[in-house]
């Protein structure tokens, strides 16, 4: 039987600090995409399992921990969509769903509810390309620096700024015509 290696306490503490600082960012990222609290829980868990098992590859000189985690969250969500398209996601979740008690369900439902403006904002950008929509989300909703978002999307920083400007302009025009949420109002008054 394989014996478990003792964790490096320093590494565990460092990862715990990153977890505590950014778990809300990751949960919110999924709460903008899913209204099922169980799915938000599973995707958040999946992201941090991927993160903790690849922590040795994290390079703080290349970007913030938040940017690193959001990048992993994007890949987790993409994997979820791919599995869902194959029809295998339902079976996987039926067998491996994370258990949540009533308190945890309430917390996640509140988090999902709180992200309603963010979901409405993304819905308002439905006519944009996937990249432009993600540019707005990563910078304006997830709080990444444009250069960090550019790195995640494989763009040059200048191209990212152009896309952001174009998308924000479009959102501004839409918000002025029909502001629905406080977030959209914020754009309308920019």
């Amino acid at each position: 039987m394989k014996r478990k290696q003792a964790p490096d306490r320093t590494a565990l503490e460092a990862f715990e600090r990153i977890y505590r600082d950014h778990v809300t960012d990751v949960t919110r990222y999924f709460a903008r995409r899913c209204v099922d609290p169980h799915l938000v829980a599973d995707l958040t868990s999946d992201t941090f399992v991927r993160a903790i098992t690849s922590f040795a590859t994290f390079d703080a000189s290349k970007g913030s921990a938040k940017s690193w985690l959001i990048g992993i969250a994007r890949r987790s969500f993409a994997a979820h969509l791919e599995a869902a398209n194959r029809g295998s996601e339902l079976a996987r979740r039926a067998g491996g769903r994370r258990e949540l008690d009533g308190d945890q369900l309430d917390e996640l439902i509140q988090r999902i509810d709180a992200e309603r403006p963010g979901r409405a904002l993304l819905a308002g950008l439905a006519e944009l390309s996937d990249v432009d929509r993600e540019a707005v989300e990563l910078v304006d909703l997830s709080g990444l620096e444009p250069r960090e978002a550019a790195a995640l999307l494989g763009l040059r920083t200048g191209a990212m700024r152009t896309r952001l400007s174009r998308a924000r302009g479009r959102l501004r025009r839409a918000a002025k015509e029909n502001p629905v949420t406080p977030t959209q109002e914020a754009y309308a008054h920019e």
């Binding site: 478990k4 290696q5 003792a6 964790p7 490096d8 320093t10 590494a11 565990l12 460092a14 990862f15 399992v49 903790i52 098992t53 922590f55 040795a56 590859t57 994290f58 390079d59 703080a60 000189s61 290349k62």
Partner: peptide, 11 residues
């Protein structure tokens, strides 16, 4: 997964 953290990233 704590045991997966055998090393602190060099960065």
């Amino acid at each position: 997964h704590g045991a997966d953290l055998a090393h602190l990233p060099e960065s």
